[in-house]
């Protein structure tokens, strides 16, 4: 196991190094931030001074060198626009995204797996057909439209839930959280549902397909022949046997949702990192973009690593395969 972890750590470092180069070069290519950062009526002297201060007069490789060197010392640089350390900027926004995404994806997983397993066990019941209809809807309706409809229905017409913002927050360990207050929770409901809908649909379909397959397997037939009750078969055989693809998708979705919850955050004016990165792209705030994307790469690496560990935890064949390798 230790060998596996070391091997994964080396892989992670390599991925991050490559990622940082690609991101840095890519961001360099899309435009000159000076044109946006400096007021158009600034004198040439002011311009030159700004370019030198931001280090934009150096050649690309040197700029990257400085960036990478600072990165290794835990310094992601300062935002051109806000003139504060990037890490502080992202750190201030991350909890908002984190709580929104975790709540919505946990909801999607729990509800999706339950509904999917039900639809897989009783494929011919009308409830199952309704569930499958819902999941097709979840797939095919664009998320921004659903978000607008949710606001129109529950915030504007019915007035049950707020339409945007984080609401009241509580500070725990120096970080502000919404989900710990009733008002904050009411602010989370709509964006969380909006974000969850697509993943819910995907979880339903995966769980249903897996369940249908497993229900026809000899494992289930043998368990039935031994007189094991259906409920026990579902809990102990089926759920376990369908879990591997579900966990894979859960991990991938967790990563991509954390990284790109932009649409929902924008619609519900949720002050998360998604909005931050979009704003940064708008003003070509290079350090923020680069740091953010590198952090996201790190996030994906960590999530994939965790998913692999969970696989080994669930499947003894993977465990023993590692030991012998």
């Amino acid at each position: 196991m230790l060998g596996f972890i070391i091997q994964r750590a080396i892989q992670a470092v390599a991925v991050m190094a490559v990622m940082s180069v690609i991101v840095f070069v890519g961001v360099y290519a899309i435009g000159n931030p000076v044109d946006i950062v400096i007021p158009p009526d600034a004198t040439q002297a002011m311009r030159d001074e700004a370019i030198r201060r931001l280090g934009l007069d150096l050649p690309l490789w040197e700029q990257y060198g400085i960036f990478a060197w600072n990165l290794l010392h835990g310094d992601f640089g300062r935002s051109f626009v806000y003139n504060v350390p990037v890490l502080e900027l992202i750190g201030g926004r991350l909890p908002a995204t984190l709580e929104l995404v975790l709540i919505s994806i946990l909801f999607a997983a729990v509800a999706g797996v339950s509904l999917g397993v039900y639809a897989g066990v009783k494929p011919d019941s009308w409830v199952s057909k309704a569930i499958m209809g819902l999941s097709i809807l979840g797939f095919s309706v664009p998320s921004f439209w659903v978000g607008l409809i949710l606001i129109l229905t529950f915030a504007v017409s019915l007035g049950w839930l707020p339409a945007g913002g984080r609401g009241e927050t509580v500070t725990v360990w120096g970080i502000e959280w919404s989900f710990l207050t009733l008002d904050g929770l009411s602010h989370i409901v709509l964006p969380a549902i909006n974000l969850a809908l697509f993943k819910l649909a995907m979880m339903i379909r995966l769980a249903r397909a897996g369940t249908r397959e497993v229900m026809l397997s000899d494992t289930v037939k043998f368990a039935r022949a031994a007189g094991i009750p259906e409920g026990v078969i579902l809990r102990r055989h089926v759920l376990k046997l369908i879990s591997i693809p579900l966990i894979t998708v859960f991990g991938l979705e967790l990563g991509s949702t954390l990284a790109f919850a932009v649409v929902t955050e924008t619609i519900f004016s949720w002050p998360g990192v998604g909005k931050l990165i979009i704003d940064s792209i708008g003003v070509l705030d290079r350090p923020v973009m680069v740091a953010y994307l590198v952090l996201i790469a790190f996030l994906f690496v960590m999530i994939n690593f965790t998913v692999d560990l969970v696989f080994a935890l669930i499947d003894p064949r993977i465990r023993s395969g590692r030991q012998s390798a």
Partner: peptide, 20 residues
């Protein structure tokens, strides 16, 4: 195909015992 690869033999026997 009949035995569940993710459960120990003991767990599977225990389930069959607990059924009755």
């Amino acid at each position: 195909a009949t035995l569940n690869p993710l459960l120990t033999i003991g767990q599977q026997m225990e389930m069959a015992l607990a059924a009755h």
